[in-house]
Simulated scan of single mutants.
Amino acid sequence: MLLLETDDVPPADRIELYHTVATGAAGASSVEHEPGERFRKRVETWTFGPVVLFATSGSGMRYWQTARHLRMDSRNTVSVITQPVGRGGFIWNDHQRAVTSDDLVLTSKSAGYWETRWSGTGTSVAFMVDVEQLELPERVIHNAVPLIGRSPITPLLLSHLRALHHDADRLVDTVGAQDIGGSTLALTRALVASLAQGPQQRTVAEETLLIRVLAYVRAHLRDPGLTPAKVAAIHNVSVRSLYRVCEEGGVSLEQWIIRRRLEAARRELVAPEHAHRTIDAIARSWGFASPSHFGRRFRAAYGVTPRAWRAGGGTPARTVN
């Protein structure tokens, strides 16, 4: 949803209106605009359940939040930020770093002073969640801020954020928007947990194992060799422990994988950009080595064959749990 396009606003009102929009969307903050540049800003936002996604583009700027801002609006949030256009910078207390399209920034209002910036024309994409949604101690979140580049989850979350921004307009009004937000939240929690240090490291790792497992599986659904044994080895646990964690979380891992592979294949069967591909090719690309097995599972799940689903252009059908 477009919140602001300053080209549509009288020049004298642009800066004040941008400040109003930025504060209303992300909470109390301070903004300074690059001198000598023609001021221009475009702000878009989308809500996916617990996650609010923002895209801000335009002329150079400096944006910061402090403990004082937290006291002003009392909403404590965690933000994850990347810079798809231009070269930006990030400051957290005494920690400084450059930010490009290949980087992620993690920060929290309660973590102390933090600042993002870019010079010239740039675009920042970020999402924000309430701290309470992460269900992690704030000190664990704060400790993760300067370490985000070390997490094996960071590339996964960055890829997810890019894809979410690219398809935000299409996805935001779908029935799966809430689940997309939940997945984004789970990946963020897994990232922070992966950076836990000291005595709490083991506890946090155990508490978030299922989240990390499902995040890994979701990112590797196309791998035909995705087996419980492989997943367990990647996460340094036994297959027995993996099954126990999944059972405690109410998840049947094999069925969870198959359901999401089927749903992904079902979408591609009727997507115009995949019209040139055969049904078997789509099935194989989502880990189904046997066309007959794919056909049986598809019909059991949706009450229609893959060929009929494609021919009908995606006619809604019942789902069998």
Rank of each mutant, 00 (worst) to 15 (best):
E5K: 15
D7C: 07
V9M: 09
R14Q: 14
T20K: 14
A25R: 06
S29R: 14
E37M: 12
E37H: 07
R42F: 10
E44S: 14
W46E: 00
A55E: 15
S57F: 02
G58V: 05
R62K: 12
T66S: 07
R75I: 11
R75F: 10
N76V: 04
S79Q: 13
V80G: 00
V85W: 01
V85G: 03
G86M: 10
R87G: 04
I91V: 15
V99A: 06
T100W: 08
V105S: 03
G112I: 09
Y113E: 05
W114G: 01
G122V: 04
D130S: 08
E138H: 08
R139V: 12
V140F: 01
H142M: 09
P146D: 07
P146Q: 11
P146M: 11
I148N: 04
I148Y: 02
P152F: 09
T154E: 13
L164K: 04
L164D: 00
H166Y: 14
R170W: 10
A177I: 08
G182M: 06
T184V: 11
V192K: 03
V192H: 03
L195R: 04
A196N: 04
Q197F: 01
P199V: 01
V204A: 05
V204K: 10
A205E: 04
L209G: 00
I211G: 10
Y216T: 14
P224F: 13
A229G: 08
K230M: 12
I234L: 05
H235T: 05
R240W: 12
L242C: 00
Y243R: 13
R244K: 15
E248C: 07
G250T: 09
V251K: 05
L253R: 07
Q255L: 07
W256Q: 12
R260A: 02
R261S: 09
R267M: 14
L269I: 13
A271T: 09
R277D: 08
I279E: 04
I279G: 08
D280M: 07
D280A: 15
I282V: 14
I282D: 01
S285P: 06
G287S: 08
S290F: 02
H293P: 00
R296C: 02
R297S: 10
F298R: 01
F298M: 11
A311T: 11
G314Q: 04
R318H: 09
V320K: 10
N321C: 06
